[in-house]
């Protein structure tokens, strides 16, 4: 059976928020080392991968591998009903058709139990090859969210250019154009590692959706390499990460 306790429901809320705009249903695979989720969006342009290792949980036990088919909108409703500082324990039997969520207030004066019906999802898993990225940029997640929002006002496409001098985001549309440049800072809030310069074009709508994960982390890592999908990674405390992959736009 599975038993996993998050110290704060707020973290689970943030994780669900980071997933639910991009995928509606997905399988959460639980093993003794932690929880994993991998799903493509409906149009198969992007992929989200979540990894939560046992270290982050207040309590974690998983005797046998169990896959939980979740409807994320339903999970969001349940999680929303709890207070952010409640502890939450997820429990599922070995061949579960439901997931039990038990919320417990700080002083244990209030407990709330919910049973969520699980879905039988036939989900493919994709193999993500190890990639040596040509450019790796780390910046405050709030800065990235702001740039994605500002860019999407101008165009559907966002061009990302990365050189040793910095990273540039550009959008060009009917209204005009926008260019935002960031350079490596001595303060260390922006770091740019470049093996070779790269310029790629991406759908801004997806980049914007990825920034739903902003509350999970102060930092975001953006990795680019020729002819492979963009990787946008948000670390999640001691648990692990949420990663978003987005296929680049190619010339027609």
């Amino acid at each position: 059976m599975l038993e996993a306790r998050f110290g704060e429901t707020l973290l689970l809320k943030k994780i669900v928020d980071a997933l639910k705009e991009i995928i509606s249903q997905s399988t959460l695979d639980c093993t003794e080392t932690g929880m994993q989720l991998q799903s493509m969006d409906n149009s198969h342009v992007s992929l989200v991968a979540l990894s939560l290792q046992t270290e982050g949980f207040e309590k974690y036990r998983c005797d046998r591998n169990v896959s939980l088919g979740l409807d994320l909108k339903s999970l969001a409703k349940v999680v929303k009903s709890a207070s952010g500082d409640d502890a939450v324990t997820l429990t599922a039997a070995d061949k579960a058709d439901k997931l039990l969520l038990s919320f417990e207030s700080d002083n244990k004066s209030r407990t709330a139990d919910y049973e969520l019906k699980l879905l039988n999802l036939d989900q493919d898993h994709l193999g993500i090859p190890e990639t040596n990225y040509a450019c790796i940029v780390q910046m405050p997640s709030s800065e990235f969210a702001r740039i994605c929002r500002d860019m999407s006002m101008f165009s559907e496409s966002v061009v990302i250019s990365c050189t040793k001098q910095g990273i540039k985001f550009s959008a060009n549309g009917d209204m005009g154009s926008a260019n935002i440049k960031l350079s490596d800072t001595s303060k260390g809030d922006i770091t740019i590692d470049v093996d070779e310069p790269i310029t790629q074009s991406f759908a801004g709508r997806y980049l914007n959706t990825f920034t739903r994960a902003t509350p999970l982390s102060d930092r975001v890592k953006i990795c680019l390499a020729p002819d492979v999908p963009l990787l946008v990674e948000y670390p999640i405390e001691d648990y692990g990460y949420i990663r978003y992959y987005l296929a680049p736009k190619v010339d027609e």
């Binding site: 493509m40 992007s46 898993h125 994709l126 193999g127 993500i128 999908p229 992959y245 296929a247």
Partner: peptide, 12 residues
């Protein structure tokens, strides 16, 4: 043109 992610990552 937007490529599918499955053209980069293959099914296991």
């Amino acid at each position: 043109m937007q490529q599918s992610i499955t053209s980069y990552f293959k099914q296991k």
